[in-house]
Amino acid sequence: MVTDRLADGVRIAELLASEVTGNESDLRGLAVVDADREVEPTADGALAYRIAREESGTDEDATETVAEVYVQPDRVRVEAIAAPDAAAEAARAVDLRARPKAVHPPRTLVFVEDGAGVKRALAVLEAVGNASGEE
């Protein structure tokens, strides 16, 4: 039985970024942008990178941020900017903890607390990407 679990926020964020950039089918059109390669985790969360959708029909540099990824010492917080309702529903479906953030426009916070949660977080990002592409 494996008793070790990955609970290092920076490493979890790296795994998530790697999965996003390497998953060409389900996350087509989403990319990691504005990455801070030397991010230091904080209790409130330090912005590690944004996840953006390339806008079709515009020049190749145009992107829309759909989520932001923040690093805390022992976890990652994904803030769904686009389609917060879709993010909340997808998080519940894959058993990730999520809660609304009372800002304008509203966001949904999704917590990835270990390395095993990274694959489940991809379903959340897929839902956000798909829902934001329909708007």
Score class of each variant (00 low, 15 high):
109 L>A: 14
47 L>D: 06
73 P>Y: 08
119 K>R: 14
55 E>C: 00
85 D>Y: 05
94 V>R: 07
67 A>W: 06
61 D>P: 04
3 T>Q: 08
45 G>T: 06
91 A>I: 04
119 K>I: 14
14 E>L: 05
6 L>F: 03
25 S>E: 13
28 R>T: 07
106 P>Q: 13
115 G>K: 04
119 K>M: 15
132 S>V: 01
47 L>Q: 12
27 L>Y: 01
124 V>H: 04
130 N>T: 13
81 I>Y: 06
5 R>H: 07
91 A>K: 02
9 G>N: 10
88 A>G: 14
76 V>C: 09
34 D>S: 13
122 L>I: 11
50 R>T: 02
21 T>C: 08
87 A>I: 11
111 F>Y: 08
105 P>A: 11
123 A>M: 15
128 V>S: 03
35 A>D: 11
13 A>N: 12
107 R>I: 01
84 P>F: 06
93 A>N: 01
62 A>F: 03
116 A>Q: 10
44 D>W: 14
31 A>Y: 02
41 P>Q: 10
120 R>F: 08
93 A>G: 00
42 T>N: 15
16 L>V: 01
15 L>M: 04
116 A>H: 13
42 T>V: 15
90 A>L: 07
131 A>M: 12
106 P>A: 15
61 D>N: 15
14 E>H: 04
86 A>P: 01
1 M>H: 11
116 A>C: 14
35 A>F: 06
51 I>M: 12
128 V>Q: 00
93 A>P: 00
69 V>Q: 05
94 V>L: 10
64 E>R: 13
58 T>G: 04
14 E>W: 02
120 R>Q: 13
85 D>E: 04
28 R>P: 05
